[in-house]
Structure formats: structure tokens, C-alpha cells
Amino acid sequence: MNHCPAGPTSLTVGEIPVNRHFDPITRHELALYCGASGDHNPIHVDIDFARSSGFPDVFAHGMFIMARLGVALNEVFPPSSVREFGVRFTAITQVGAGITCQGRVTAIEIVDGEQRARLEMTARDQDGDIKLKGEAVVAFDPQGEQE
């Protein structure tokens, strides 16, 4: 365990090791994400298209918010430790939303000889409305060392 170079070496159910706030989402960021991600659906960047599709305005790519949830996760758990990461997109994220990303430990288990934590992952806006909700499974002894 003492050779775990990054990430927590102990976790307890109920704690919230992942907790990060991001500045309000801008239209400019949505344009950049459109190009950077390859998701060229105009509904996220072209207000005329969004309106013709029945929406009052453009809105964030769900995957942009999930990417930020991933940034928050990787701030605590190194990329090599992430075994699973999944979300449901429960509501549309509007331009201007200030997103808070959190991960709360719901279980500690041993799978394939390694210690893993299950985290309930959420992304909420400034009003506390949940935009993304899901789960990440992380190994917190990524080297798989035996005691």
C-alpha cells in the first residue's frame, strides 16, 4: 500500500474524496468542445438550429460535463486506477451553469485481488439540480500489492 504514488491509500464509505467546482459554462467553451471532441451536433453551438429543434437556446454537450466529472475524478484517483465510469444524463445543462462535480464513496470491495471503491458521481448546477449521475469504480491500490 505504501507504494501507491498517487491517490488515497484509505477510504471510508460516506466520504466525498472527489469535490470540484467549475466556472460557469460559456458559449465559447461549447464551440471549443465541438471541435475538440468531434461531436459536431449543431444543437450545442447554433442557436438557430437549437430553436428549430424545439429548444430555447443551445445547451452543453453531456459529454463535456462528463469530461469535467472525469477531471475531478482524476484529480484524486490517477487515470490508471479507474476501472469503470458511467453516468446518466438526467437533465440538460444550460449555458452559464456553474457545475460542481462530486464523488461519494458508497462501497469498498475486493475484486480480482485488488481493493476497489465505488463512488457515486454527480454533477450539479448552482441551484443544486443534478445534471449527471452515475458511478465510478476505482482501485486504490493500483499496483495490486499484497499485504
Partner: peptide, 17 residues
Amino acid sequence: DIGRILHGEQKFAFHHP
């Protein structure tokens, strides 16, 4: 048509980097 779709769920299970 692409204007009719939204993203519902996304899950990744990672095996190798």
C-alpha cells in the same frame, strides 16, 4: 435527424490504457 437526439447514458469499462 440529429436534432431529435439527446444523450441518455454513457458507460465505460476500462481494461487496458
